[in-house]
Design a protein around this nucleic acid. Structure first.
Lengths: 235, 235
DNA sequence: TTCGCAACAATTGTCGACATTTTTATAGAA
DNA sequence: TTCTATAAAAATGTCGACAATTGTTGCGAA
């Protein structure tokens, strides 16, 4: 649950760090709704702390792209428009496919074993609950491990710290919590295969396709609801 | 000079914003040296302000990846190891090639004209000062315009706000301020051509190659100085 | 000498109050 | 009614002081 907040943010002990995590979860789950204003004075009263740590927490959330802070106007929870979601997935496509290439070159055998364990668990889960979905947490585990395996701290923070929170927020609130079943698992297997072969190019294109497919599913699903907004797309 | 800080950060009037810009420039130029500690109390005295705005400024700089902040330990200026520089360029390769693809699809003709103007200026500059280098500012203008043309705010902030400051810092302090001459200009022309043709794929690979070449130049130059550290590479 | 512990100094975290700006509410004129 | 202008209210920005943690220094014991 608090996996990446401990490893990446390094939050320890401080009040602002606890508030950061609490607010983060509240935003991701939608308990604090999209677009709503985060009043410093009000939140300070709610948490019974001074405004100092609260401002720090807001800054932290801004670093996760979960809120947008406008000087002298305050902070608002990000609004997940369809346009933004697609932009996020385009960005993820670029970063995570590169991460996969690097992972194929740099992952240790121990880390590859970890990928196998995750996939096996997913496989078992689907045998047990026939034709079920991959649990969201397990899917995150897979991608987390993949990204960390790239051994590139810049890509890692761009993805795990700045992009994934938004993706989690979207999935949670749109009940995309479950990724599609058989196909995704098969794609995960292909990814691990490519990495195992140390085939950097194959790993890259396989992950790229994996994410493009997710993006397209989302686009189809959202357009069927929202109607036909103009969407831009390339490559 | 303060182009992107006004447009992206939206810093207006506040003390913390001014301090942010001052410190940013001091870090980029090396006036504050890499790895040095940023003491809140000391800096607050230097700027003659309280520690509040200063902490905000430090957070802003953290968002630009220019400093690393460790809770209960303070903030340090980032250290541009060769490893980090190469990671930055790998990340840039992934993001900016994608940005180019999107730009080929989404750029307006006005923006394409802007690219032409920049290139023409670079061309003129090289005719006038025979066999000179492209000025750093002009090179940034080109890439800024390209990235903005993608019409993807997520990629835009990842590049302009979080990655470019580091690149500027590196170039400035290593006197890479000037990019290589004839080749780079020719590559810029190829990029604009691909965008003009609305060829998303070509635009992507052209930019990718452009950045890979820059990365390789840096790697060769740094390894020749530092010696032979193990470097990882894929694709 | 080297290690460990205690007292001290320095730094970061937190707080409450004041200053300034933004927003809202109200009143008056077109 | 609608718009503008003014005043009140609320929110953010900033400050100085205190609390808690970290890092350092110096002494004494093994």
């Amino acid at each position: 649950m608090s996996t990446y907040s401990e490893q990446l943010g390094g939050y320890t002990g401080t009040i602002s760090s606890e508030i950061t995590e609490t607010l983060r979860d509240a935003i991701i789950t939608g308990e604090i709704s999209q677009g709503s204003k985060l009043s410093e004075t009000k939140l300070a009263k709610d948490f019974d702390v001074s405004r100092g740590p609260l401002r720090e927490a807001i800054r932290n959330l801004e670093g996760m792209n979960l809120i947008v802070h406008v000087p002298q106007q305050g902070a608002r929870v990000v609004t997940l428009s369809m346009e933004l979601i697609l932009e996020i997935y385009d960005t993820r496509e670029a970063l995570e496919s590169k991460a996969a290439s690097l992972a194929a070159a740099n992952m240790t055998s121990v880390e590859i074993d970890e990928l196998h364990r995750i996939i096996d668990a997913q496989s078992k889960h689907m045998r047990d609950n026939s034709n079920s979905y991959i649990p969201a947490e397990s899917d995150y585990d897979f991608h987390d491990t993949l990204v960390r395996g790239a051994k590139n701290k810049v890509i890692e923070s761009a993805l795990l710290r700045r992009l994934y929170p938004l993706i989690k927020m979207f999935r949670y609130q749109h009940e995309f919590a479950s990724t599609s079943t058989t196909n995704s698992l098969q794609e995960h297997r292909q990814i691990v295969y490519a990495i195992e072969q140390r085939d950097t190019e194959l790993a890259g294109v396989t992950v790229k396709r994996h994410i493009i497919r997710a993006r397209d599913r989302i686009e189809r699903r959202l357009t069927s609801i929202v109607g036909d907004k103009n969407t831009k797309r390339a490559s």
